[in-house]
């Protein structure tokens, strides 16, 4: 646990805790070598992982979604599966299938790609609603029900789903209730000019091919997940968090504000962001940082106005002194 030495303020952190926070820092830095100029997005993904949630990535192709997913799976030493969703995919293609085994005269279950620790579900909105909901249900319950039997997924189970926001033809937009299952939604966006230039450099090309060394393991991740739940939030911070949530509900340009579950998501993400920062308590800045990724896919705005400006304005106008 992180703790402050109260008597000697010049020595802020104990030895053990340096390891935890630093290790996470190293992980972020390590992934950052592959995804340039996106530290904040990487941190958000890692924080979501520690908060036990799932990520929805909305990006154009070629912005490094896959790279990000693979790198994170690598540094955490997780099993990694990738499914490319298409409109002709059936739920069994994701969850697995029971096959009649003639010799034994029983049904045997063949596990689908979902039985892994890190699942990259590419172009989720291309799948039919049936497949989408099968996947999302499994995500929510952390288990697969098939023919009256339930199969547990791994303790550490993380989904990173991607959506292509531009190609609208032949897609099935996720309903609001399904979107709520993702803790955060992100968009990597274009790198800045200098980082983009680096992409072309010889050294980057070299390192890009190498896989990242595992800095952690699922076991440790699980313990971090437990630890994140105990991160303390002072009443003042909770007030602030609640106020932000409330403002989304009364805002005139937002049709539907955050649900209580979304509020809880905001809290969880703030907790793990605080852990990333090496603290055992949440500060308002954690909430501010968590607010946009949590709201981004959840808020339904009027006239389809971009949510980003509205969310930014809410944070900006809510004074915290």
């Amino acid at each position: 646990m992180l703790s402050y030495m109260t008597n000697n303020l010049s020595e802020p952190l104990t030895q053990k805790n340096i390891t935890d926070a630093d290790l996470i820092g190293q992980i972020v830095a390590s992934v950052g070598k592959k995804i340039l100029d996106k530290t904040e997005a990487i941190e958000t993904v890692v924080a979501t992982l520690i908060a036990g949630g799932h990520v929805l990535l909305e990006d154009l192709p070629g912005l490094g979604k896959t790279t990000l997913a693979m790198s994170i799976a690598q540094v955490f030493g997780m099993d990694y599966n990738r499914i490319q969703l298409t409109s002709d995919m059936m739920p069994s293609d994701v969850l697995g299938v029971s096959i009649y085994d003639a010799p034994t005269q029983t049904f045997s279950y063949h596990k689908g790609p979902i039985f892994t620790q890190f699942l990259l579900a590419d172009e989720l909105n291309r799948a039919t609603p049936k497949t989408q909901s099968a996947l999302l249900e499994a995500m929510a319950e952390n288990q697969v029900s098939m023919d009256g039997k339930t199969y547990q997924l791994d303790d550490v189970f993380f989904v990173m789903a991607t959506q292509n926001p531009i190609d609208e033809a032949g897609t099935y937009n996720l309903p609001q209730s399904q979107l709520d299952r993702f803790l955060v939604s992100l968009s990597l966006g274009y790198p800045d000019a200098e980082s983009e230039r680096q992409l072309y450099s010889q050294s980057y090309m070299q390192s890009f091919k190498e896989s990242l060394p595992a800095l952690s393991n699922p076991e440790q991740l699980r313990s971090w997940q437990q630890q994140a739940l105990t991160i303390h939030a002072a009443n003042e911070v909770l007030d602030y968090l609640q106020l932000l949530v409330k403002k989304t509900r009364t805002h005139s340009e937002i049709l539907h504000g955050l649900s209580p579950r979304a509020g809880l998501s905001l809290f969880r993400l703030s907790q793990s962001l605080a852990m990333l920062a090496g603290r055992d308590f949440i500060t308002p800045a954690d909430v501010q940082r968590a607010f946009y990724p949590v709201c981004r896919h959840r808020l339904v705005t009027k006239d389809n106005k971009p949510a980003k400006e509205i969310i930014k304005a809410i944070v900006h106008d809510t004074a915290i002194i």
Partner: peptide, 20 residues
């Protein structure tokens, strides 16, 4: 006065102002 928004309205109808 935080915000004033208006839904589009047809001429002759009242515009509904939402004032926050």
């Amino acid at each position: 006065l935080e915000q004033v928004t208006a839904q589009p309205a047809f001429l002759g109808e009242d515009i509904n102002l939402k004032i926050t």
